[in-house]
Simulated scan of single mutants.
Amino acid sequence: MEKHFINPPQLPNWEQAFSQVVVVKSDSLQTIYLSGQVAMDQNLKLVGEHDLKRQATKAFENLQIALASVGAAPKDVVKITIYVKDYKPTDATIVGDVFRNAFPHKNLPASTWLGVQALALEGLLIEIDAVAVMSI
């Protein structure tokens, strides 16, 4: 089994705290673990302050960048977890629309959505982590 720890330069640099992507290769499969993606650009600037739709869009964009950094795509995601700060039922439509744009294919990943009191940094409204699996 091989493990690769990756911090794509197009994503915020958190390498002092964690790796953005961890790839585990075993036999003919590789499992890709994606750290929680948020609405921060590569310069650690918040995108879409107070705007859930803009933050969701940026977080899903960052998720796709993380996937692409190891040759994966949304279709390879098998599990996704979405954390929404101070979740309200009306947030489901906003997040759901952005989710469907990011995952337009028929077979959607297993999914958990959680309302949380706070996220790691002030101003963040959403965080998305995922697991993907690919053949080697």
Results as ranks from 00 to 15, higher is better:
M1D: 15
M1C: 07
E2L: 14
E2F: 07
E2V: 09
K3M: 08
F5G: 10
I6S: 12
I6A: 12
I6R: 00
I6H: 09
N7I: 04
N7G: 11
Q10W: 04
Q10D: 15
L11M: 03
L11H: 01
P12L: 11
N13C: 13
E15V: 06
Q16E: 15
Q16N: 10
A17C: 04
Q20T: 09
V21E: 13
V21G: 11
V23F: 04
V24Q: 12
V24Y: 11
D27C: 02
S28L: 07
S28Y: 12
S28Q: 05
S28W: 01
L29D: 14
Q30A: 13
T31D: 08
T31C: 09
T31K: 06
I32P: 01
Y33E: 13
L34R: 03
L34D: 13
L34C: 12
G36I: 00
G36F: 02
Q37K: 10
V38P: 10
V38D: 14
A39Q: 09
A39W: 02
A39E: 13
L44V: 05
K45Y: 07
L46C: 14
V47E: 13
V47F: 04
V47I: 11
V47A: 13
D51W: 01
D51E: 13
L52W: 02
L52P: 02
K53M: 07
R54Q: 09
R54L: 15
R54F: 02
Q55A: 12
A56N: 06
A56M: 10
T57C: 07
K58G: 12
K58S: 12
F60Q: 14
E61V: 08
E61R: 08
N62M: 08
N62V: 09
L63W: 05
I65H: 08
A66S: 12
V70L: 07
G71I: 08
G71D: 15
A73D: 15
P74N: 13
P74Y: 04
P74K: 05
D76P: 00
D76L: 09
I80C: 12
T81S: 15
I82P: 03
Y83Q: 15
V84I: 04
V84R: 00
K85W: 03
K85H: 09
D86K: 07
Y87G: 12
K88L: 14
K88T: 05
P89N: 12
P89E: 13
D91Q: 03
A92C: 02
G96L: 01
D97G: 08
F99M: 04
F99N: 01
N101F: 01
P104N: 04
H105L: 06
K106F: 02
A110R: 00
S111C: 06
L114T: 04
L114A: 12
G115M: 02
G115P: 00
Q117S: 10
A118Y: 05
L121C: 06
E122W: 07
G123C: 05
L124A: 08
L125N: 06
L125H: 03
L125R: 05
I126K: 03
A132S: 09
M134P: 00
S135L: 06
S135K: 06
I136W: 05
I136A: 14
I136F: 09
